[in-house]
C-alpha cells in the first residue's frame, strides 16, 4: 500500500491547486517583511497566517475527480492523508519561514495545526458535497469570530485554537479518526 501512495504522490501533487496557497504565501511574506522594516510587531500576521494556511491545507482535500476515483481500492481516507501530507508540509514550512522572519517570540505552530485539524474534522463530518468547502472555511470563520466577538465566554471558547492549540489538535484528530470510514 505504501508503494502505491509513493507512486501516487507526484500525480496527486500535480492535481492539487497550488496557486491560492502560493498567492497567500506571497502576501504573508510581504506583510512580515514590511512589518519588520517598519519595526512593528508581526504577531497579528502570524495569527492571520495560521488561519489562512490552515484554510489552504484543508482546501487541498478538494478532489475534482473524486467521483471517478470513488471505487478504487485506495480508500478516500488514504488519498486524503496523502493530500494533507503534500499540502501540509509546505504550509508548515511557510509558517516557520514567516516565524523566523518575525522578531517576536512565537507561540509555535500549534495554532496552525489546531486550525488545520479542526477544518479537516469538519470536512470529514460535513455532508459530502460541500464538505471540503465547509471545512476550509472553518479556520477563517474561527479566526474572524475570535476577532469580532467581545471578550467573554464565547470568545474564549472560539479562541481555544490560540490559547490551547494542542488540546484542540488532539480533539480534532480524534474526530478525524472517528470519522475515517465516512
Amino acid at each position: 500500500m505504501s508503494g502505491v501512495l509513493v507512486q501516487a504522490a507526484l500525480p496527486t501533487a500535480r492535481a492539487v491547486r497550488w496557486r491560492p496557497g502560493l498567492a497567500l504565501t506571497g502576501v504573508l511574506l510581504v506583510a512580515v517583511v514590511l512589518g519588520r522594516a517598519a519595526d512593528r510587531s508581526v504577531d497579528a500576521v502570524l495569527v492571520v497566517a495560521a488561519a489562512g494556511l490552515a484554510a489552504t491545507v484543508v482546501a487541498g482535500l478538494q478532489d475534482p475527480a473524486a467521483d471517478l476515483l470513488a471505487a478504487v481500492p485506495v480508500s478516500v481516507m488514504r488519498r486524503r492523508v496523502l493530500r494533507l501530507a503534500l499540502v501540509g508540509a509546505p504550509a508548515l514550512a511557510t509558517w516557520w519561514l514567516l516565524d523566523s522572519l518575525s522578531t517576536t517570540t512565537s507561540s509555535g505552530p500549534g495554532p496552525l495545526l489546531a486550525l488545520t485539524a479542526t477544518g479537516v474534522a469538519v470536512a470529514v463530518w460535513a455532508p459530502t458535497r460541500r464538505a471540503v468547502l465547509v471545512g476550509a472555511s472553518t479556520p477563517v470563520v474561527l479566526f474572524a469570530l475570535h476577532r469580532v466577538l467581545p471578550t467573554g465566554t464565547a470568545s474564549d471558547v472560539v479562541g481555544r485554537w490560540l490559547t490551547d492549540p494542542w488540546w484542540v489538535l488532539a480533539i480534532a484528530t480524534l474526530l478525524c479518526v472517528a470519522g475515517r470510514r465516512r
Binding site: 501516487a8 500525480p11 500535480r14 492535481a15 475527480a65 471517478l68
Partner: peptide
C-alpha cells in the same frame, strides 16, 4: 465524471491505474 484537466489522458488513466 470530472477529470484533472491539466493532465493528459495518459497521465489521468495512469493515475487511476496507480490507485
Amino acid at each position: 465524471p470530472r477529470l484533472y484537466t491539466g493532465f493528459t489522458p495518459l497521465e489521468m488513466v495512469d493515475y487511476v491505474a496507480i490507485l
